[in-house]
Amino acid sequence: MKNDNYLKDIGHIKDMMNRSSRFISLSGVSGIFAGCYAIIGGLFTYYYLFPKPHEQLNYGSTKFFEIILIALLVLVLSIATAIFLTSRKAKKHNAKIWDITTYRLVINFLIPLVTGGIYIILKLNSQHYGLTASLMLIFYGLALVNASKYTIGNIKYLGIAEIILGLICAAFPGYGFWFWMIGFGLFHIIYGSIMFVEEKKASHWES
């Protein structure tokens, strides 16, 4: 009788831990994936689409749209992977993926991100390309910091790192591409790997 109660207690502990921490999976493996997509997209752009030193990248040219298309593709793939991996884990633990917390997380993430996106498009429209990478990093960082209130804390530090990188990037015009690769590629992979190791440690508790 007593044993049964203890067993129920342990079941309850496991259930609470799983339900409250579903975003751990969003942070780990999907972070590594997002970083890889960014680097592949970046390298592809660099070798095939980047304007030669004497060329100018014109707003509205085919090349311009191809670069935008790749950037969007990287974004969509990253988000799709994150949603796929998270919902798979949620299903395994019988947790709802859409609750008030998820909703708040998404809204808080999107406010700075969409603001930044529109701002960058307006700037591109008026031929201001120079700060694109810097602005992307800064607004993405702000979005992460803003969303971190609704998920585990580490995402805040990734956000702060992206903001700092974006500011440094603004100080070195002409190297935007490389800063973009570090911020969206390398940082995601490093962050994803750290989270992955921590998840493994946490799952030791669960089982």
């Binding site: 309850h12 502990i13 831990m17 409250s20 921490s21 917390t101 585990i152």
Partner: peptide, 26 residues
């Protein structure tokens, strides 16, 4: 107690949680 056990479980795997989040989970 179930509720206290739940609170500690949530806080063991999350850096922090606010009142409403705990209420919703528990």
């Amino acid at each position: 107690h179930r509720v206290r056990l739940g609170i500690m479980s949530v806080l063991a795997v999350n850096e922090a949680a606010d009142f409403n989040r705990l209420k919703e989970l528990l």
